[in-house]
Write a protein that binds this DNA or RNA. Structure first.
Lengths: 357, 357
DNA sequence: GTTGGCACTCTTGCTTTGCGAGTGCTAATA
DNA sequence: TATTAGCACTCGCAAAGCAAGAGTGCCAAC
């Protein structure tokens, strides 16, 4: 069912104002400031209907109106003004992003931190879950008691570990193991590495010192670590900036839920989705702890046809527009760095596609 | 100046009770519950003197007494009952610690997390600052455009990085570089790797493709990363459990200070100190943000004659005794794992040495 | 030096009260 | 029929007032 154009304008004005001030907004204020061209009485009538329709509610008789989750939904889907960044702002963002992206290793962590900084809400990041394999093995003989395992992974990273042994190994044994692992343990995922395989390798190498199991343990650990989607949370404490979290108990509940890990982000169905931003408003969230918060999620191309997620948590009274724009920008930046994606061309990254849940 | 024995007993009772309840404690309550064997009137006289001496204060006339930082200091130095763990408790702690220590990599992070969990205060960890060098270089030739750099560091860890090149290199060049780096870049600290050294290596290798600079950049980055003392904070949000941080602004201030990094821990002078626990009470802290909080710090043996720090932040009304015991236990566990230290024998790890600041 | 007693102080929580914001309704108007 | 002005009404909120209770300081007696 559609609602009149004027109702939409009024609803948008209410949401905008409420986002700004966190105070219920009244008819008089709208008449004076929203430029709707009608009197407060008219607006009152419209507001009453919007309440009846479920888009707004009043905390109590004779307070102003406050958006319901349904009201936010409508706002996000249809009414919200898309943020446009000026050239300078784009450059500023790019500068910040690039500064973060310098630090190679934990790109996602630092981008999530940046997201939190930019939005002043807590941020979450979920790395893509990619089935990973070992592409190549190297064992570097250091001395009789020491060698280094080097794994080249299918996600194009190299992992290494120094192994110290109580017994001595000779160089030929190291070479034998190296070639055995290269033939038997490459290009298979973690679950293909069975105790059976390990055992047969051990026999083939004539290894009585447990080297085989040390190496395979490292392989298994590395693969599972690389494959598991890791979750990061940053800036939890920014919640305390929001008036709706002035109650320390409430804040604490959500914060400990957040630092418990990012189960917040729906891990499924992020395979396809492209540049769209997903918004989960209040009760749309599955987790009980999030029932009166909102989550905004962007997904990024993590390479290998996989996608990771980056998101923001805040009160339902969230600046959806600004948050969506920023996340979209960051996700594009991540995609560019990690996947085959491209930064959206100048002035285009504001073309957000908001997908209804 | 020393104070009477009874005053000490009263002071201890006040601090204990205040730690427990966070409420100012009155004379009547002490007379009834502290087992001091004298009447409330007597206690009132003593309390008045303790106030005059600066160990206690009253928030306002006719409220109970509250310890001053000086009062806490006295408590920590002389009065506090050392926590003793029963056999079961020791085992429980050991079990938890060992569970954490399984996860190899970020031992310190997980121990700091455990510390926060156990104490219900935010925890900090600072890894030891060790000048690190490369002991050995390996370059693994993967294909014409790809090779892996493997560094064996003086702290007995191996670091690796996959390098992808736009141009092709032949295997002999990789070998040449490998031997050059092994002779020129090993056993020197980061600051010995000058642009001059890099440049001369580049010429010696006849490298026109910038391989030398890629490799040396990785070396420098790895060394500085390994050498820099990293700081971790966990469980900031537990602050919100403390009544003194019910004011969201206050909590927020401290929390963002904390997540800004662990500049909280005095990094210097941790070289020698052994099993002692250091306590910084309120204004004894240098950082403005900590002036009405307390910090408890234990140091652990991180091997190579270096020591790291692990600490707890909380209100001055902190359960010093419990915190000190737990930190001491964890530090001993870390020392055992990382350094040459030993777990204190059964029933001995309660022998805390509290060092005055 | 210790204790019981007592008047005094000051916080805290509760209830009361007045105010103002904002509404809903009605009647007049375009 | 849609809009507007006017007005009475409701309700939350903050200031004010009040009673209770906790704790003190002091004094006189032991």
């Amino acid at each position: 069912m559609s609602i009149s154009d004027r109702k939409k304008r009024i609803l948008a004005a209410v949401v905008d104002e409420y986002i700004r001030t966190a105070e219920p907004v009244g008819s008089k204020h709208l008449a004076e400031n929203a430029g709707l061209g009608c009197s407060s009485a008219t607006i009152r009538n419209e507001l009453a209907e919007l309440v009846a329709l479920g888009y707004l509610e009043q905390p109590h008789t004779s307070a102003g109106r406050v958006p319901t989750p349904m009201g936010y939904r409508m706002y996000v889907n249809e009414l919200m003004q898309k943020q446009k960044y000026s050239l300078e702002e784009t450059e500023e963002l790019n500068r910040k992003l690039n500064a973060k992206l310098q630090e190679l290793d934990d790109t996602i962590v630092s981008v999530s931190r940046l997201a939190s900084q930019l939005t002043d809400y807590p941020a979450l990041a979920l790395t893509a879950a990619v089935p990973t394999t070992v592409k190549r093995f190297d064992l570097i003989y250091v001395d009789a008691n020491t060698f280094i395992i080097v794994l080249l992974l299918s996600n194009n990273s190299a992992k290494s570990k120094l192994v110290h042994l109580p017994v001595s190994v000779d160089q030929t044994m190291v070479q034998k193991l190296s070639s055995l692992f290269n033939s038997g343990f490459t290009n298979v995922t973690e679950d293909a590495i069975t105790p059976l395989l390990i055992h047969s390798t051990e026999r083939a190498a004539d290894d009585s010192m447990g080297l085989t199991s040390v190496i395979s343990a490292f392989v298994i650990e590395t693969l599972s670590e690389a494959a598991a989607p890791a979750a990061f949370v940053s800036g939890e404490n920014r919640l305390l900036n929001q008036p709706e979290f002035r109650d320390p108990d409430k804040a604490h509940r959500l914060m400990s839920y957040l630092s418990g890990g990012g189960y917040v982000l729906p891990t499924g169905e992020n395979a396809q989705g492209s540049d769209e931003i997903r918004v989960l408003i209040g009760p749309e969230n599955v987790a009980e702890e999030l029932k009166d918060s909102s989550v905004v999620i962007a997904s990024y191309d993590a390479g290998d046809n996989t996608r990771g997620l980056i998101g923001i948590v805040g009160p339902t009274r969230m600046d959806y527009s600004a948050v969506a724009a920023k996340l979209s920008f960051l996700a594009a930046g991540l995609s560019k760095r990690l996947g085959g994606g491209e930064m959206p061309p100048e002035g285009m990254h504001n073309k957000l596609v908001i997908k209804e849940q």
